[in-house]
Design a protein around this nucleic acid. Structure first.
Lengths: 241, 241
DNA sequence: TTCGCATGGTCTTGTATAAGACACAAGACG
DNA sequence: CGTCTTGTGTCTTATACAAGACCATGCGAA
């Protein structure tokens, strides 16, 4: 007797639970059924379920706490910053950015945007231009590109409780997009005129160029972002294991 | 009855096995005893042992293959490059670097070197200056600093079979230093005169500056490295999860 | 006889199950 | 305000079978 699905059972279970979170049938912050109960419902042993849950926890989709239970991860600004924001000051400490949006427009994707976001040529995208400010000084100039199909009617958060919110939290709360992974390519460029104006640096100042593509829990490319970081007072930190 | 060591058993077992590899009582490439045998020797269950082995495998200290056995990881140039060398060409493909060493000197550590390598002020270090060449063009200029205490009598590999070898492989084979982790800080700088000479670029060309500190399986800081990458034709790739 | 190779035995790790002791958190109760 | 109870995840053990790798045996063809 052959299994129809050759993947290990714990992988299949992880996919099932992932789907429940992506589809929203388990909502953010909600507590999951206890291990024995969930295992019984899925028809697998507790050990198999635990292995699947461990995979979800590694991708920050759930959060487990002994004695309390297992929760669908609530993406907070702190969590999003800790996971995706790699900028440190010269002492190696994390910095807390403020954000200033300068433009939000919608239009057809460029060739590069379409390629990176796996869109058909000419599909509509939203573009956000903004700067990020550390300790009063603008240090990053960036453009975010979103497929309009995934973010229908995208507009910027204006309610006071949303103003300081990381944009990934907003993706999730407003559009149900759960960000889990980014690919980045780094290089060094010289500041051009628009960057120098935003960042208050001389033209030609070396900037760290970060080209990011971000994927959600369903595996879709959901965001493209090009950031220019002024590294006179900050560093981009990476750990290699 | 309280356990004297409050850490979970599988963590203790992982530490024991880690120590056996670090101390060299299990040599590189050697096959470990089979699971049931090793579990019996350590006095733990097979499941606990497996969990410890999974931790070692995650850190690339061992390599397991179903049907064959568990081996102490043999650091090859391919493995070291795949793990620690993040440079890609513009198509996103890995590049194969050649290396040209221009200097090897020994002297007292600078203040910065001592701080990063956790050395006492004035301790001796070896310094290697070299360039890395992709497709015939020098693209990285870098200086490697090693604590002399950890690398006694350090000299460069000259035997033909060692010439193309990644230096981390050489650390391991010649000095028993097993590299497992690096912290990096990235920034952008303008090429100064020496860099421009090595890299064949104009003075002022933006370069990606990579400041790396590397740690071995015993948790010691074993290497500091400052690299300048010419990103006109290459990128530094990161995945964030 | 000798070569080639299929086959089965036996070793390994990988997957899945079950059960119990333990540790932590929260609320109920005195 | 402490203590107890209940419910939760965590750790550890044990067992069984599946699947990959290797090797010796031995059969059949040249």
């Amino acid at each position: 007797m052959r299994r129809p699905d050759a993947r290990p059972l714990y992988v299949q279970v992880e996919a099932i639970l992932n789907e429940r979170i992506v589809s929203g049938s388990w909502r953010s912050g909600q507590v999951l059924p206890a291990e024995p109960e969930l295992a019984a419902e899925l028809g697998v042993s507790a050990g198999t379920l635990r292995r699947a849950l461990a995979g979800l926890e590694r991708r920050h989709l759930i959060q487990r706490r002994q004695g309390r239970g297992t929760y669908v991860a609530q993406q907070t600004s702190e969590q999003a910053l800790g996971q995706f924001f790699r900028v440190r000051n010269l002492a190696g400490q994390p910095v807390e950015p403020e954000t200033l949006v300068t433009a939000l427009v919608t239009g057809p994707a460029t060739e590069e945007e379409a390629a990176r976001l796996r869109l058909a040529p000419g599909e509509e995208v939203h573009r956000i231009d903004r700067s990020r400010i550390f300790e009063g000084e603008p240090r990053i100039a960036e453009r975010i590109t979103l497929p309009a199909a995934l973010f229908p009617g995208f507009s910027l958060p204006l309610a006071p409780e949303q103003l300081g919110m990381e944009i990934y939290v907003y993706y999730r709360n407003r559009h149900g997009i759960i960000v889990v992974r980014s690919d980045e390519k780094l290089s060094a460029i010289a500041a051009a005129e628009p960057d120098s104006a935003v960042l208050g640096c001389a033209i030609g100042t070396p900037l760290l160029l970060i080209e990011r593509v971000t994927f959600d829990a369903a595996g879709r490319a959901v965001e493209m972002r090009v950031s220019r970081l002024d590294t006179r007072a900050h560093r981009y930190a990476v750990e290699i294991v």
